[in-house]
């Protein structure tokens, strides 16, 4: 009698342990997630491989892109967020091919793929060690994703356990502009964000 009871208790205990293990097991995406270094605006955030700082963020309801004298208007059901900063490789030549906006709800918004490649954004840049380079990031997102969001930059979306920089961008949603223009310059600095401020 006591033996049966003991067996039943042992079984229950085993089931409870297994249930606990199942529910506390980290998810695959957590095991293989990048190693994140966080920081704020106007701050050089450094990982083993690269450093990034962001110094300008502008929010607008519409975006005009001006390349080689042609202007194309890009409308959106949300807003455009244009972020500028400086990226630098530390030890070897590299490209930072992945940049996402992460909203406070945890939703990711990838760099826009709507504007032409003649406007070169961060993923297209080759970063040389010791030579900081200006970087441009353009996102499109719903209005509610702007406040409290951060920018996550890493070498590649596909390499687990790589370095990732996350910078909290305090975008001022009260200063949403009706329209901004992104102009490709044919000489000198590669792009200009208009109107200047």
């Amino acid at each position: 009698m006591i033996g049966t009871l003991r067996t039943a208790l042992a079984l229950l205990f085993a089931a409870a342990v297994l249930y606990g293990l199942q529910h506390t097991r980290p998810r695959y995406s957590q095991i293989t997630s990048p190693i994140v270094t966080t920081g704020g605006m106007n701050e050089r955030v450094q990982t083993g491989n690269f450093a990034l700082s962001l110094d300008s963020v502008r929010v607008a309801r519409a975006l005009d892109v001006e390349t080689f004298g042609k202007t194309k208007a890009y409308t959106t059901p949300g807003v455009w967020v244009v972020v500028e900063g400086t990226a630098e490789a530390r030890h070897e030549t590299l490209s930072l091919t992945s940049a996402d906006w992460i909203s406070t709800a945890g939703v990711r918004y990838a760099l826009t793929d709507r504007i032409p490649a003649t406007i070169e954004m961060l993923p297209g840049d080759v970063n040389q060690p010791g030579l900081p380079r200006r970087a441009l990031l353009v996102f499109e997102m719903p209005q509610e994703a702007v406040a409290g969001g951060s920018v996550a930059v890493t070498r590649s979306k596909l390499s687990p356990l790589d370095d990732e920089v996350q910078i909290a961008v305090d975008a001022d949603t009260d200063r949403t502009e009706p329209k901004i223009t992104l102009r490709r310059n044919n000489e000198g600095f590669p792009w200009t964000v208009l109107p200047q401020r």
Binding site: P77, G78, V107, D113, R114, M141, P142
Partner: peptide, 9 residues
């Protein structure tokens, strides 16, 4: 290309 979350298109 990509359709962003929560943006009706």
């Amino acid at each position: 290309n990509h359709i962003n979350p929560n943006m009706p298109e």
